[in-house]
Design a protein around this nucleic acid. Sequence first.
DNA 1: CTCAAATGAGATATAATAATCTCAATTGAG
DNA 2: CTCAATTGAGATTATTATATCTCATTTGAG
Lengths: 192, 192
Amino acid sequence: MTLRDLSLVETRKIDLLNAAGELLAQKPTASLAEIAEYAGIGKATLHRYFASREDLMVALAQRALMVIRDAIVRSELERGSAVDAFTRMIEMLMPLGDKVFLLLNDNGLQDHPELADIEAPLTELVVGLIQRGQASGELRADLNAEWIARYLDYALFAAWKAVHDGSIARNDAARLLVTTLLGGIATRRATS
Amino acid sequence: MTLRDLSLVETRKIDLLNAAGELLAQKPTASLAEIAEYAGIGKATLHRYFASREDLMVALAQRALMVIRDAIVRSELERGSAVDAFTRMIEMLMPLGDKVFLLLNDNGLQDHPELADIEAPLTELVVGLIQRGQASGELRADLNAEWIARYLDYALFAAWKAVHDGSIARNDAARLLVTTLLGGIATRRATS
DNA sequence: CTCAAATGAGATATAATAATCTCAATTGAG
DNA sequence: CTCAATTGAGATTATTATATCTCATTTGAG
């Protein structure tokens, strides 16, 4: 085994990130020593892969964003009606909560450049979908698309948290979120 | 001046909390030394008022919740239609973002008993309003009231953050949030 | 099998911050 | 004005976690 064998190194990094993500989901304040132990490796080895805690955190957040991106790509936003695509996207994203939702807020990595580079095109995809829906008359055109995208983000967090707390059923979460987002909380009568 | 003069001690505590909240809003990682300096008092004095950092943080979060509670009480949820009351509440809460929205997520004080005691009755008030709206036919009865309350929380954060980032206008935020929450993001056509 | 590369356990060094302590200076009630 | 209570500046100690280092052991490519 040599360091030049990038695929092996990458595999180990992935295993390490998986373990770290798992532990941090339970205990967001876990120390590097705890993470190393949980991952079954030595502290020194952890540092060989990630020089600092921040490096590790950034890598974790990058991966979380990439998981989200993959889910969005796989939901084929361009296919069918905007509302159908929107629904597919929520259904794909909903199950990812456990892996990503703690990682993406809790930390102080909001405006890290390496993360912004991944997040920006992601937001673009979503904004694009929303604009398509507005153009087709499916989504309200009186709301700014960027606002809707941000609103969607937070609504996702709300649903993830509700599932995590056990206050809504896992299987029901996507449907519930979609219907709440699309239809709002008022009846027709009240908003007419 | 003696320690038995509770009102004076309370006044100083309030000043200290104001300063601490102000600084932490700008720099959430500020050390106790920085907080003391910003408040214009010595570190020792700060410790005389709050024995530990956690004590201070809990006090800050308590106060933030109390500020929110006051705003909700002043919006008279029982007066008029549920939608009107709901709108008044959002309009009262929106301007508080700067003071409270960092304090209530960022930290690790989620399930502190002293905070839960303040938060629980608050949630009750909101859930009560939502149920009133559902009973009167103004709000959708097919959505669980607790879910709507939580959804509302996160939507508020979304709007607060959007204002903070400058991506929506301060003056417009309450109206935008209310219309998005009540009406949803889809057109009538799409949800019919 | 061989050996260079990689690893793990743990010691050690650094760093940041919280918490405590000391004491001279200030404050304000009476 | 007087004096006990309070305060502030800063030294000191305690705590915690990160980061580095050492070296014996393990691993796996060839």
